[in-house]
Design a protein around this nucleic acid. Structure first.
Lengths: 323, 323
DNA sequence: GTTTTCCCCCAAGGGTCGCTTATGCTCAAT
DNA sequence: ATTGAGCATAAGCGACCCTTGGGGGAAAAC
């Protein structure tokens, strides 16, 4: 079995015309070259070069092998170059999937920094909400999935179980944003930030100037819900507070939620992150009690953390989240 | 440093989709594949594949490397194929240099047998007399040189020295057909046959029906000499017999020599081998005393004896000489 | 739900391989 | 004749590679 090492030696010997010079080129000793050439000749089954006094010449077989060796080693060098570019962040594609409020806040700043530090890397971005984004990740359609989850709601496992029972609108139980039972145990989880839900009330509302509002105080208000997962979380929190919210509107378009609240059609809770990139007009934000937080994380496959471009992207995301 | 072995494993893993199946393909155990892949990933500096439960997928780096690996391994296979063809005598060029009487006797039968046994081999033939043929061999312009030499003439070193002294028409002292001083000590010498010189006299000559003739009995005859080396040998032998031959004609064209003898213009001695391929007409052959023999050998560089096509050619030459 | 099966990782052992150092030989040049 | 360069060989040592045996985890089968 001919190995690349053999061909490197052969090429050096052919180029320099002597074993000693080849050894110097290769950075090893002369006996090493002798042994490699002997091994190669044995693998080849024929003499590859003739020693004529001081000079060494190739035989027909040696010339044939050298002819191939040039191309093979060139290909190998190209492969090493390309892989080194990927390893050295001079190249590398990362497919990133994020939920909308992440795409418009964390991701742009992270990608801008990544691009500035490593111009060769390319990141593609696709929007998808957590259950779907994790599917994409597991299916190999992306390298990083930004997702979020709510901590085990209420006080313990009992509530978590109720939560699990309530999950019957989505796809089976792989909803990807619940607390415990469908964890990402086989994934690499990089926590980015914890995002607090804040209440939204129209200007002039009785709580418009309140600094903090108990959730129960909004029991009689009409509600405007966000994305399905946020809506589920809302219902759950309200039920823990002892009431079932009356949801008049539901949309995953955050500006629309704000517009509806501003028009006086109801109140809402939204992740703080979602508010960062939309123009707030005609509404007031209030802190709600009990505090509800969601954990925003970057998910990837464990092996992919060893891919430099993926690791670098994760680092930038974490950095961007530090604000 | 990426080795071919790594790429073979990578290709097998990519093709089969699992380490175990790749190990079966490669004829080794699964941990061996694991270790090779780990080594390759370390050499590459990035993860190359992701383990997703039961299936394994390539990363971007893995795909890039595999893309190169296909070409590299194909090149390597082509190289091994070509070198195997040369080693297995399904291919291989041999450049053979021979003196004329060898070209027309030993060589044709040897090459015919070689061609029959190994149709892929190609032998090219060039005519050259010994001193020149050995030069060609040493210069790398041929692989095998057929040559001949006369044993140390007369009784010992004294005569050999005289012989050496006489060599002043050719190129220096590398005449390649003398006895001792310019031996082929650095060459591989394959004895083929010992060729006796026979006398040629015209029909009707007083020795035409003699079975054996002493060389001295031809002292007064006009002589027709062959090639320069044969002529030199003739002179030497005659001088040892106590006379200097009167050489009226000299030509290295053996049919011409025979023609001249047949026309009654003189007598000659020719190597038996030279007579084999010419039509003898009008002359008689007689054995001369003392017997003069020349040794016909095949010369090659020592390393070239390990080139299968060269070795096979030498074997066929030896076989052809066994007649 | 439990069991089975498959696949991979890990650790330890043994054998091979590859490189180095040291030595001797041959050839060419001074 | 001597010196220097180049290659071959042998011994020693370290690294590498492969194997065996055991374990864990996830998907498939019962």
């Amino acid at each position: 079995m001919i190995e690349a090492r053999h061909l490197r030696v052969l090429r050096a010997v052919a180029a320099t015309g002597s074993f000693s010079a080849a050894a110097r080129d290769l950075g090893c000793t002369q006996p090493a070259v002798s042994q490699q050439m002997k091994a190669l000749e044995q693998a080849a089954g024929t003499a590859l070069l003739v020693r004529m006094g001081r000079e060494t010449r190739l035989t027909e077989g040696g010339r044939a092998l050298l002819r191939h060796a040039v191309g093979i080693l060139a290909g190998l060098a190209a492969a090493e170059e390309e892989i080194a570019a990927i390893a050295g962040l001079r190249a590398g594609r990362v497919r990133l999937v994020s939920f909308p409020s992440g795409s418009s806040t964390l991701v742009p700043t992270a990608l801008a920094e990544l691009r500035a530090a490593h111009p060769g890397t390319q990141v593609s971005l696709v929007d998808a909400e957590p259950p779907r984004s994790v599917e994409l990740l597991r299916a190999g359609d992306c390298e990083i999935a930004l997702a979020f989850r709510y901590p085990m709601s209420g006080a313990g496992a009992g509530a978590a179980k109720a939560n699990a029972k309530a999950n019957e609108d989505g796809s089976a139980n792989a909803n990807g944003c619940a607390g415990a039972e469908s964890e990402w145990s086989d994934l690499a989880v990089r926590p980015l930030l914890t995002d607090r839900l804040v209440g939204l009330v129209p200007e002039g509302h009785r709580f418009a100037d309140a600094s903090v509002v108990g959730i129960g105080e909004l029991a009689e208000e009409p509600w405007i819900a966000g994305c399905p997962r946020c809506r589920r979380q809302l219902v759950e929190v309200c039920e823990e507070a002892g009431f079932t919210p009356r949801i008049d509107f539901a949309t995953d378009d955050y500006p629309a939620v704000i517009g509806l609240v501003g028009a006086g059609l109801g109140v809402a809770v939204l992740p703080e992150l979602a508010l960062e990139s939309v123009r707030i007009k005609g509404v007031r934000t209030v802190r709600v009690e009990p505090a509800v937080e969601r954990e925003v994380v970057a998910l990837t496959l464990p092996d992919l953390t060893r891919v430099p471009a993926v690791a670098a992207t994760l680092d930038r995301l974490e950095l961007a989240a530090k604000r």
